[in-house]
Amino acid sequence: MATRVSYPVEVKMKAIEMRLACIPVKEVMEQLNIRNKTQVKTWMRWYRSGEWNRLEQPVGKQYSYGKGPEYASELEKLKAENRFLKQQLDVLKKYKEMPKEVSPKIVVEWIESIRGEVSVTQACEWLGLPRTTYYRWKSAYDTECKDHVVEKVRELCMQHKFRYGYRKVTALLRLEQTINHKRVQRIMQHEGLQCRVRIKKRKPTGQPAYLAEHLLKREFQAHLPMKKLVTDITYLPFGGKTLYLSSILDLFNGEIVAYSIADKQNIAFVLDTLNQLPPLPGTMLHSDQGSVYTSEAYQAAVKGKGITMSMSRKGTPADNATIESFHSTLKSETFYLEGLTCTTTAIVEQTVRDYIIYYNSVRIQTKLKNQSPIDFRRLAV
């Protein structure tokens, strides 16, 4: 067991003076050779509560509750009283602005400002004020301050036309007062003062007109032409305005059998692509769950051609990987390769048309035994 150390009264008083001068505890311990920081905290607690006599008690000596301090002589008692009065005068001298006619607000602000030096109990004794009265005043003061902060937050939000979130509002408030960003966030949420620049986008909750099963099941091979088709839409953001490409690909030989280019992604756009196909009884057409494909008009046109519809699972683009790969290849081998990132709309359209002709009739593919899609189809027939 460690030996308990007894410190002289002079060391204890010196430690208290250094702490009142805002010297860090670690530095006080090093200068006065004090082993444990809890010692310093205990001495400060005794000092603030007016129990200076306890600074002179021997190690292990405890004063029973209600008995009060014991003094070795009348002289020691007078010294303790003098220290009490000196402490009271020292603190009060620092706050000469304290008016004679005090109000609850002034009392609360004054006691809060000296809480690092004396306890609430001691401060209330100096003022002749019951502690319960002080805490009642403090509760009302905190409520008033809270209302003030709410009004200040609302004023800042309106001043900046709701362009700022809680972080920037907190930064502005901290120019005048200390405040936690979480408190500002709670106030803005409760009062409906959130930033209105970037509102969260929500997808429509309505149900699509038609959803087909995933019949393709990622079986991207076909043994006969025009039996398995896949379709999709891609962006063409390379010209003066964004264009869209809707294409249909035959899984038998990877040939683009129909396509359309337009500046609007609507039902008429995909119908134009579909209408390029002849009637195909027994053919499967696979797409994603886009609103244009699930629409009643598109489904009616599909059924009119005797085609069976298949759709990818929600949020699974790999279910339609073949057509996704074609669109990626088209952009990589034309716009990105040739640096056509900013050109005219006419050039974009012509580039896509020329590439599809090249892709179908000239560009060889390893999976087609190094033949172009059209050549592979001709030889197979």
Rank of each mutant, 00 (worst) to 15 (best):
A2K: 13
Y7Q: 09
E10A: 12
C22E: 15
M29F: 02
Q31G: 00
I34S: 01
R35M: 03
V40M: 03
T42H: 07
M44E: 12
R48L: 00
S49I: 04
E70D: 03
E74M: 12
E74G: 13
F84Y: 05
K86V: 11
V91N: 03
K93W: 06
Y95R: 09
K96E: 10
E97D: 14
V107M: 06
W110C: 01
R115I: 12
R115C: 06
G116L: 02
S119F: 00
Q122C: 07
Q122N: 03
Y135D: 07
C145N: 10
K146H: 14
K146I: 05
K146L: 13
V149F: 07
K161T: 04
F162K: 07
F162P: 05
R167P: 06
A171T: 11
L172I: 06
N180M: 07
R198C: 05
A209R: 07
L215K: 15
E219R: 10
E219Y: 03
K227I: 01
K228P: 00
L229V: 00
T242I: 15
T242D: 02
S246I: 09
I248A: 02
E255A: 08
Q265R: 15
N266S: 09
L285H: 00
S287N: 11
S287Y: 04
Q289R: 15
V292H: 15
T294I: 02
D319S: 07
D319P: 03
D319F: 08
S325N: 15
T329L: 13
L337W: 08
T344H: 01
T345M: 08
K369C: 07
K369F: 02
L379Y: 07
V381A: 09
